[in-house]
């Protein structure tokens, strides 16, 4: 029955010139369910929002959408608040990912030998990576409180005045970065740790013979061998950091003022506070373009077809 169906479909596909010979259908058959699902819920919405970005449409008004071609983009690029959000986004990603790499690499070097309890330590370090971002954001908001917060209690133990983390523009920006670094450096650590423990021995032996210092070994042996993993880890994190939303949304909602309004907050505000669907679609396509640039590079280096 199935065989018959297969033959019929194959026959007509060959006749129409889609396939060259029998059995060419097999890869497509394996692919079909995924493609059908993703086509409906991923690619179609993407195209939809692309089209939407050429329309002026306020969802709460019954007037409907009006084709404005590039107006949304022109308005967007002339909007200081948008550029502000782009700048914050870039800073946020650059600083957090850099710090995460530093800490992750440092800790990976520190723990890079067998010791009792190794497994427990690694399992515990995994927890922050998988904590619900909303819970993380809310907990940090709680901890940052100058009166009741644990962080300021700690600062007080050392005799300093409480820092109103979420009150001042710079502090608030630092605060959202600290939250991100806290949650995500173990991710860097895991990747680099795995990679470190699988490095070959021979270059180290050679370095030992030539009498290199520890720093030299790190700089000229370890680092070059780690480089591919570092690149992949960094790009995975960059793309992930471009998605940051819920933790910042619950921590600062983009404030004080607009000090933490990164792109996702800007888009969210325009879509779900102002209901300017076309305008927000245009803004989100800028974000997509940035994310795609990184990911296509990553895909091309990491996969071969």
């Amino acid at each position: 029955m199935i065989k018959k169906l297969k033959n019929t479909i194959e026959g007509s596909l060959i006749k129409w010139g889609f396939l060259e010979k029998k059995d060419d259908i097999i890869p497509y058959a394996f692919l079909a369910p995924a493609l059908i699902i993703l086509g409906g819920i991923l690619f179609f919405p993407l195209v939809y929002s692309f089209v939407l970005s050429f329309f002026n449409w306020n969802m709460t008004q019954s007037g409907g959408a009006e084709f404005v071609f590039l107006d949304n983009f022109i308005k967007l690029f002339g909007n200081g608040a948008f550029w502000h959000s782009v700048r914050l986004q870039v800073l946020f990603v650059a600083i957090s990912v850099f710090l995460e790499l530093l800490i992750g690499l440092g800790v990976a070097m520190l723990l890079n030998h067998n010791f009792a309890g190794e497994h427990v330590v690694r399992a515990l370090l995994l927890l922050p990576v998988f904590i619900l971002p909303v819970v993380s954001g809310l907990t940090f908001r709680f901890m940052y409180d100058p009166q009741y917060g644990a962080i300021n209690w700690l600062i007080g133990l050392f005799g300093f005045n409480p820092v109103p983390f979420l009150s001042k523009s710079t502090f608030a920006f630092v605060a959202i970065i600290i939250q991100d670094v806290w949650r995500m450096w173990p991710f860097m650590f895991m990747i680099l740790y795995a990679s470190l423990s699988s490095l070959p021995e021979s270059p180290y032996e050679a370095a030992a013979i030539s009498g290199a210092t520890k720093w030299q070994v790190f700089r000229h042996v370890t680092l070059p061998m780690l480089k591919p993993s570092i690149v992949i880890a960094v790009i995975l994190r960059i793309v992930n950091a471009l998605k940051a939303f819920s933790e910042i949304y619950v921590m600062t909602n983009g404030g004080p003022g607009d000090a933490t309004s990164i792109m996702s907050i800007f888009i969210y505000k325009n879509a779900f506070d102002f209901y300017e669907m076309g305008y927000s679609a245009a803004a989100s396509y800028v974000l997509v373009a940035i994310a795609l640039a990184f990911s296509i590079y990553l895909v091309k280096t990491q996969f071969e077809f």
Binding site: F44, S49, L52, K243, S264, A271, S280, A281, S284, V288
Partner: peptide, 8 residues
């Protein structure tokens, strides 16, 4: 970013 897809 999922925020892009949420509207459509």
């Amino acid at each position: 970013p999922p925020i892009t897809l949420s509207v459509p």
